[in-house]
Amino acid sequence: MTDSSNQKFLIVRREDFSDVTFLLEISHPMMARAAKPGQFVIVMSHAEGERIPLTIADFDRERGTITLVIQAVGKTTLEMQRNCQVGTALYGLAGPMGIPSHLSDAKKVVCVGGGLGVAPVYPQARAWKESGAYVIGVLGFRNKDLLFWEDKFRAICDELIICTDDGSAGIRGFVTDGIKLALEKHPDIEEVVAIGPPVMMKACAEATRPSGVKTMVSLNPIMVDGTGMCGGCRVKVGETVKFACVDGPDFDGHQVDFDDLMIRLRRYKEEEQVAKERWSETCRMRGIGSEAVSVN
């Protein structure tokens, strides 16, 4: 990360939703103009960093910015949580990547976001609202403290169902309970979009399978280039193999082999652990532990 205000990929706003989830708004007028719901970017926070895919959570064409919502879970994202402050810049930011979400002419839709997935489902919900659809939002969090963007969704949803694992906000239960509520109340729902952890998207696909309501999911496999060149992000969809970066990231949830996806996401588990431990150790030795994280 470099401090230079005239640099590319400048971070212009940051918001911390909880001690693990944070938002970065990054200046990139051209990308703000090109971005469409469902697309993602590849971020490199520094020259020795990884290339990580992050879904675009929002874009503002007038301000010339794109917004990313990040959960600090591994070395790279923990490091970003510490270092990515307003006025610093990302080392690399490429995108928008992937095929934009197909905005169907469905009249009544459910937009499901689980945890971090709440952010990327927002542009799609907004686009549907703008096209005149009846939008039901279903947002899931572990508890009330992790909840974010309720106001943003209230502004664009005709109905909003909040689900928390412990019942500290909204209904007690998972997003699948929210989907079931919505499907019972509205038999004319034409499409469901679910974005979140693979296990959640799998459960959502199973929840809608009996009724046969079209259910789109946004996949997040491991990627390197994001341009179709390495094949690391290949996923099984029906009988075929697809590259999530250029053939997706949106796929028919009823066709996706989620078990295969979840196995492949464990590919670098050991290395991820090594990197994270090493990083925590470095922070501890430098005396910059968790207290440095609570900025803003």
């Binding site: 020795e48 960093g49 390197v224 390495c230 670098y268 090594v274 990197a275 090493r278």
Partner: peptide, 25 residues
């Protein structure tokens, strides 16, 4: 794919993991 192996190794310098962040088992 060979592309993935080579990209991780050459471009992302994964052979120096964990000194760089990109892994290559």
């Amino acid at each position: 794919s060979a592309n993935e192996l080579l990209t991780r190794c050459n471009l992302m310098k994964a052979r120096d993991f964990p000194n760089v962040d990109t892994p290559l088992p």
